[in-house]
Amino acid sequence: MSFILIVEQVLNGLQFGVMLFLMAAGLTLIFGVMGLINLAHGSLYMVGAFAAAAVAGWTGSFLLALLAALMAAALAGAIIEMVVIRRLYATDHLDQVLATFALILVFSEGTRWVFGSFPLFLDIPDYLSGPVTLPGGIQYPLYRLTLIVVGLLVGLGLWALIERTRLGIQIRAGENDREMIAALGVDISKLYTLVFALGAALAGLAGALVGAIQSVQVGMGEPVLILAFVVIVIGGIGSIKGAFIGALLVGLTDTLGGIFLPELFKLVMSPAAATSFGSSLASIGIYLLMAAVLIWRPTGLFGARA
């Protein structure tokens, strides 16, 4: 196992983690401000990817496709917030789980109804395709580097939004005391719609960015959704910082575990058994990580509320 390979795998883990962060940030924001658990967040990821694929196919422009993904997901988010989600804030988590579970069914089959049952095409633009050579002679795909940079920039932007703007003050106030900001004259329902649309847009962006190197198909959001849950449980629900750290931890564990665990077991087992056992263990590695974090800190690394 060479040094170059290790660096490359760490980069892969980072890239995966950064994309998970885009998903988890929206989820944790929505939970922090509105106290809502949204299972349909994965559907918004899918909406973003499908919108991007449709617009890229139509215009041929990747940037327009990304823009379409942001807008379509934000719009879908705003609509479901106003039609369905709004009625769920006062109810318990149980109703939220069921209603958003129902939304998944509607979104998945609705998408299949509109776009058909076959995966769609969405590709990396020419100017971002192919590998670049990093210092030390490491060959790494330019697009994945771009994903890391975009993810970090979005994270930075989100931080600035929350810490430095008026909207951010309202969001933070909303996390602490819902009644109070309503009493202060902030239009709370508008704020909620806005936050929900923002979370949705982040998910849609992640869907489009990742869709370019993966398969754009119905149900693509569900595995990511569950990973995003693990991320925010590890990071602490409601904490953007926690989502960021959690996402990187999960990304690195998942990527590196799949590579190094089988190698590790080869030291004590036959190669075939090591491959099989190591891959099995790696597939549950992130859940073991989550369990370990929870034993240590039941509300996650940066979670305040339980």
Binding site: F31, V97, I226, F229, V230, V233, I237, S276, S283, M290
Partner: peptide, 27 residues
Amino acid sequence: LALRTSGVYFIMITLAFAQMFYYFTLS
């Protein structure tokens, strides 16, 4: 493990444990 938490943590942790079994039996 899960009952040390409540609310939405509990929902997600129980979900994650079930997923662990799912992936384990899959392979």
